[in-house]
Write a protein that binds this DNA or RNA. Structure first.
Lengths: 349, 349
DNA sequence: CTGAAAGCGCTTACAG
DNA sequence: CTGAAAGCGCTTACAG
């Protein structure tokens, strides 16, 4: 690899002058500059960022740690958002996925590696919204939690605004005249579950609809979500409760709900409206009818985290940012709602 | 940040001795070693890898470039495989996604950034199997192509073995006595399409089944795969051809095929067997019946790439590695095949 | 077993 | 406008 000195020799100047040219210092005569530029191109010189890092004490690297990677497909958009934002600061992302394949305490090792590389900060992202106790060494640099937050509230964090999302999803059905809206929520321990339930209640309140305990059910942690959705919906129907709308904790639950409703001969959305959650683009558009659902602000959270890392200052109490979840309208709430490429003549649900 | 000198002062030794302890050099007296260890812990010393890099000329960083990230969900397992393998070499991954959000020539810029960081090599991965012409500056370091290959064959590459996969998928149906197996392939330009077609033909040959042109169809590039699958299957049936098996270019196509078959009153797998491709775990297990499909060796390709980068040598002609696609058996080929958590009493397809 | 010197490839002050 | 010196935090020979 060519060094700055070799360039200097080739151009007949001191290496300091080459440094000036490389860094766009204006105090270089045009003539010298051109000579140096030529030498750079001829020799294929590329500055060594490790050396620069040594002097400037800036690595221009941001660490990114995930707890899992493929399970929730579109959550990788957090990486995408973080990386795009980092690029704007001239930083690159060092990504480590700590899925339990190797040592148990791998997360701390991973953080250690990043600290030794003197990263500008660390983004710690979980693929599903949850409460965590951050690894202790995460506090030794700037860090932001994404899609999770710390119990002790020791670190800044950014998560989806679950309450607003729950309210929006429920309102979407209320606004189409639905009055008896069931909610088949995620397991009750899930970080997302309680906020969404609050939002659901709030929407009902605002539309003067009484809250009814019997309409709210939770799926179980370990069970397959589709199966649970099916089972809970079926149980609801068998208990004699016929809702005119169902809000589902995620799109897989919605598949099960579709199945149970079809089996009961109830049409979507004519008799029962359905709204999902997550906007799984491999599921939602392919159901019959295509599923209206809430999208998660993955990319935005990634961006927010990096931005905060680079510009956030050090407030005494770290912020906890809530980002809005967009409502993605398809055809499971109202017939005339929108269009899609689905073959209209297929009875497949 | 504490430096090696501060540790040395605290321990009352030269900084060279600290270096020895940190690097596990055996020629240090136990007593000295302990004193140094203590100082390290007290001061929270962490070696600066940029400085080490300067001297050793090894960055222990591997660059990873992707063309897109979220479109094909489980392809991110390539990153996972690459990272896990890198970890075994003590390397970290610098990940850049070059989705066309910013500048058009961003890929070359991305490579440039990695070169300036003196990465040990670059893994260039595409999320779907294709032919590419690699950016010219990719040749300025060690590089491996994943899930794609270069027309000029100038770089080592690793891709799924599409031909074997096509043969395996087709054989799975032939072995269950199917004789008229249709193939609704990806668009004919796709890198995966021709290999799979070869495999399909080969399987037929081996089972003494004549190849029939009319049974083979391709979807179109821009169309939604589900819609195309539906349309192609329907066209096939309307032309009077009733197959007893269908091999689908991907799982979305299979959704459409399921729909068309259901509409025609043909049961899966009793009357028609179906095999998909990609093993989309958000789709395949949820169809009725659950879809048997071919999985892509994403993680293995990622691993292979990093391993080759680190140990591959420099053969005159770069290797082109084909990795096997496992057949994932569910219930769309034969009734008694396997089990699943799907509610058996639902007619949903 | 331990240490003083040199140098990796740059940038930061400081002179001229 | 240009350059010589010092130093970022380490490791690599080389002495002792």
């Amino acid at each position: 690899m060519t060094t700055i000195k070799q360039v200097a020799d080739a151009a007949g100047v001191s290496f300091k002058t080459v440094s000036r040219v490389v860094n766009g210092d204006p105090y270089v005569s045009t003539q010298t500059r051109e000579r140096v530029q030529q030498a750079i191109e001829q020799l294929g010189y590329r500055p060594n960022l490790a050396a620069r890092h040594m002097r400037t004490q800036r690595s221009n690297v941001i660490g990114f740690i995930t707890d899992e990677i493929a399970t929730t497909p579109f959550a990788v958009n957090i990486i995408k958002g973080a990386q795009n934002q980092a690029w704007e600061y001239g930083c690159l992302l060092m990504v480590i996925n700590t899925e339990a394949e190797t040592a148990a305490d791998r997360t701390e090792d991973a953080i250690e590696m990043l600290l030794q590389r003197r990263v500008e900060g660390i983004v710690y992202a979980t693929m599903r919204h949850k409460l965590i106790t951050p690894p202790h060494n995460l506090h030794e640099t700037r860090a932001v939690l994404v899609n999770c937050r710390s119990l002790a509230h020791t670190l800044p964090s950014v998560v989806p605004d679950e309450r607003s999302a729950g309210e929006r999803a429920t309102s979407a059905m209320l606004e189409h005249g639905r009055k008896r809206i069931a909610f088949i929520n995620l397991e009750s321990g899930a970080a997302a579950a309680s906020g969404r339930l609050e939002g659901y209640r709030r929407a009902l309140e605002r539309h003067d609809v009484a809250y009814d305990d019997k309409l709210v059910r939770h799926t179980h942690l370990d069970a397959d979500k589709r199966d649970s959705g099916y089972a809970e919906m079926k149980a609801l129907l068998q208990s004699g409760v016929i809702p005119d709308g169902v809000f589902c904790g995620n799109d897989q639950i919605a598949i099960g709900v579709y199945e149970a409703l079809q089996e009961a001969g109830l049409r979507i959305p004519q008799e029962v409206a359905v709204v999902g959650f997550d906007n799984q683009t491999l599921i939602a558009p392919y159901l019959h009818p295509p599923l209206s659902t809430m999208a998660l602000p993955h990319e935005e959270m990634g961006r927010w985290a990096v931005k905060y890392l680079m510009e956030g200052g050090e407030p005494p109490v770290p912020p906890h940012e809530l980002l809005a979840c967009p409502y993605i309208e398809r055809q499971s709430v109202s017939v005339g709602d929108s269009v899609s490429g689905a073959p209209a003549d297929v009875s497949y649900r």
